[in-house]
Structure formats: structure tokens, C-alpha cells
Design a protein around this nucleic acid. Structure first.
Ligand SMILES: [Mn+2]
Ligand SMILES: [Mn+2]
Ligand SMILES: [Zn+2]
Ligand SMILES: [Zn+2]
Lengths: 122, 122
DNA sequence: CAATAGATTAGAATTGTTCTAAGAACGGAA
DNA sequence: TTCCGTTCTTAGAACAATTCTAATCTATTG
């Protein structure tokens, strides 16, 4: 699965990786690439985000039923999720310590431990 | 918001709370209630699951883009998620210890900390 | 320069979820 | 007990997020 540097993929990669760490939804990235003057369908944005994820360039973070983000920060870290604003905020991996994860069921291995700290207007 | 014991709600509550702890999707519960001989629309199953959640009888667990479960175990606990089988397995709350959650942004407070241990065929 | 295999794209289809408005149940007044 | 305003309930329709599929494009090989 060699990813060719097509017009669509180059445009999306440019937006995703130019600046620092980003949390984007498929929809928001599609808006962005469209406003930047490129013609890319939303389906292609999804395809590309999944391909980049599979290639290890992105991480997918699922926060709500029917709402997921793609994260350019692929290092070990966790998230605050502020549902009122639909906003994801990074928590450095070093900050949170998770102890006591039990042995997973036979025949399986731990792939990733996701922590979402749900926050609310106080 | 007094919930009336309607035919639909009584049927759903019966299925949800008869046996031990359960993780159901709206779709799977709808199948179940239909097979049990009741006529309840899928929209009503969603309504009811959300009402029960708001009433503190259920917890919603979001695992994948477009896949969420409702959990009759409302105590403090966490989950293994076995994506290959779409299966959620409880981890007792006492097992996992989470330390070092940073202070949330000003004006917000922590509502809940969700931990999902994603497991894979080894 | 074919011919072929593999990759790409986006429209269409599907899935999961929420909204809305018509009807049903309730409670108070007469 | 009947009427009536109010609140609650339900499910069809609408919507939103995501995935599928097949037509098209690209690369590779002879
Ligand atoms: Mn989105
Ligand atoms: Mn479902
Ligand atoms: Zn992040
Ligand atoms: Zn559970």
C-alpha cells in the first residue's frame, strides 16, 4: 500500500502537518482544504485520514457518539474533552499515570490505553 | 421529568435490568425487544436509553466512531474494548488507579474519567 | 507503446442518531 | 364525571457521520 503523493493527499498533508499539533474532524479539515482552493471530496478526506492513521501519522480519538477527531500528536498522551465546546485539549503522557491494568483476556494483548477526562462548565 | 411506566419503557427496563450487568447498543436492544414480541420503534429505544441515562440508571460508553454502548453497571469501573468482536468487558473500578490528572482549564471541573483499554488478537 | 495490475477518487449508499409534531395521559376545575 | 389545558410520549421523517463501490487514473512491465 504505497501512498502516492496525489494532489489531494499533498494538500491535506500540508494543512495537517505544517503547524504544530492539531485535532481535526473530517468535516473541519474538508472545510479547510476547500477554503484553501482545492477540490477534494469529503469521502476522500475520510479515506486519507484513515490511510494516514494506518500509516502511523495520525491517531484517531473518539469522544462522543458520532464525533471523532484525528490527532497529529501521535506521542503518548491523553485528553481533556470539553463537550460543551466540542474541544479536545492535550494532556502530556508523562502527567497521567495509569496503574493496575489487569491482564487482558487470553489470546489478546493491549494495543492502547485511552484516557478521556470529561470536563464541564463548573 | 417524571417517567411514566409505559408499555415500551416497562418492556425495555425488564430486558435491561432483569439479569446482571449488561452492555447493549440501541440496535441490539431493539432487536431483543422486538424478538420478545413488543412493538417499539428504534427511535423510542434511543429516547428511553437516554432518559434512563439521565436518570442515572445507565452509563453511556463510546468506543468507536459510530458505535456506543449503554451500560447497566453504573458503579465506578473501566473497560477493555475488543474491537475485533465489538465487545466491552468490565474492569472493576478498584483495579485501575489513575494518578496525576492535571487541573482542568479555568471555569471547568472534571465530570468523569473514562479509560478504555483497547485490546487486539495477540 | 500496449496491456495489465494496482491505486485513487468521489458519488451513492448505509448506518447511527436526533428532531418534531401528532396523539395520549394526567390533573385540576366545574 | 366531564371538560380542558398542560405535559409527556412515541415513532416517522430528517439529519449527520461514515463507508462502500465502481469508474477512472496511474504505474509497471514486456
Ligand atoms: Mn466530523
Ligand atoms: Mn447501535
Ligand atoms: Zn491529542
Ligand atoms: Zn461496563
Amino acid at each position: 500500500m504505497g501512498l502516492r503523493p496525489t494532489r489531494q493527499r499533498v494538500a491535506l498533508a500540508g494543512l495537517l502537518f505544517r503547524q504544530g499539533d492539531r485535532h481535526v474532524s473530517a468535516e473541519s479539515l474538508h472545510d479547510e482544504v476547500t477554503k484553501a482552493g482545492f477540490e477534494v471530496s469529503l469521502a476522500t478526506v475520510y479515506n486519507t485520514l484513515h490511510q494516514f492513521t494506518e500509516a502511523g501519522l495520525l491517531q484517531q480519538v473518539v469522544v462522543d457518539a458520532g464525533r471523532s477527531y484525528f490527532d497529529t500528536n501521535i506521542g503518548d498522551h491523553q485528553h481533556f474533552y470539553y463537550a460543551d465546546e466540542g474541544e479536545l485539549i492535550d494532556i502530556p503522557g508523562a502527567a497521567i499515570a495509569i496503574a493496575g491494568v489487569p491482564t487482558p483476556p487470553k489470546g489478546t494483548a493491549v494495543e492502547r490505553v485511552d484516557v478521556i477526562v470529561r470536563i464541564k462548565r463548573a
